[in-house]
């Protein structure tokens, strides 16, 4: 009897130990990144490496703002933010059509999903040529449109699932009660999928925020986004690690906050709806 309890305690302790080691291993690189961003150049280039900075100082961040490089975070915010809003709006409407009217049947839905699977490298080149012709290279409109298109399949696919979860009866009841199709959408469907909308929007934002290939090809000087800015420090002057780390932290913090806000929907979001979690 007591030995059973003791065994269970030992087992739990063992699992805690394992869980701590595993988690520490996975979190350590992030710890290192954040610590590096607070280090002085001397501390960064110390050998053997310093496990934590002597003091928390924001000089590395200050440099980014003084140089004006921090504008990259703003650029990312604008492109990711606006493209997310557009993709959410158009994608949710399209998803409603697919979910409720089975428009285009399964074939259309699968085609849309397959658009998501397309390699960016295959379309970035012709898009680049198109944008050169339109004068959209290094412009917000070009990148926003591209991110919108890039995220639409995801939004449609996810929202199709969330809308499918809304009982049809509610919409029918609203119709009988006197609503037009649009009113049904606004007054019944949208409020009921609100959390799904929110979760999907966060993922859409994160995808656009982290995107690299399109940004690399389609930005020059005006709207450089933060991942591109990070890579621009490679091979630079001696303090480049300070800038890389600081810029990375600036670009990573918003994501951590966003993801922390929607833990509950994380699994459904990253598994593209395969797990309702």
């Amino acid at each position: 009897m007591t030995s059973a309890i003791a065994r269970r305690r030992a087992r739990l302790a063992l699992r805690y130990a394992a869980a701590t080691i595993v988690t520490a291993t996975f979190v350590f690189p992030i710890y290192w990144l954040f610590m590096t961003s607070f280090k002085t150049p001397e501390e960064i280039f110390a050998s053997p490496p310093q496990w934590y900075p002597g003091s928390i100082q924001f000089q590395n961040f200050n440099v980014l703002f003084l140089d004006g490089d921090a504008i990259a975070v703003w650029n990312s915010l604008v492109t990711a933010g606006i493209s997310t809003v557009i993709a959410m709006f158009l994608g949710t409407l399209a998803a409603y059509s697919l979910a409720r009217f089975k428009t285009g049947g399964d074939n259309l839905a699968v085609w849309i999903l397959s658009q998501r699977m397309m390699p960016p490298i295959a379309i970035v080149f012709p898009v680049f040529l198109l944008y050169v012709w339109l004068g959209w290279v290094d412009s917000f409109i070009g990148l926003i449109l591209l991110y919108t298109a890039f995220n639409l399949p995801y939004v449609i696919w996810m929202m199709r699932g969330y809308i499918g979860d809304v009982p049809l009866e509610l919409e029918e009841s609203a119709q009988v009660d006197g609503c037009t199709r649009w009113q049904v959408l606004l007054k019944v469907v949208f409020p009921l999928v609100r959390s799904g909308l929110f979760a999907t929007a966060v993922f859409t934002f994160v995808f656009a925020w982290n995107e690299f290939i399109f940004a690399l090809v389609l930005t020059r000087t005006e709207i450089v986004t933060y991942p591109v800015q990070v890579t621009r420090y490679f091979g630079g002057q001696s303090n480049f690690w300070a800038k890389i780390a600081a810029m990375s932290v600036l670009g990573t913090l918003p994501i951590f906050i966003a993801v922390a806000m929607m833990q509950r929907y994380l699994v459904r979001g990253i598994s593209m709806g395969a797990v309702k979690g």
């Binding site: 009982p167 009866e169 509610l170 029918e172 009841s173 609203a174 119709q175 009988v176 009660d177």
Partner: peptide, 20 residues
Amino acid sequence: LPPRERNVAMVFQNYALYPH
């Protein structure tokens, strides 16, 4: 006519109350 213009009322099997 769409449902809203028929001026009928309907009670559904699962009540169809708007949860929000």
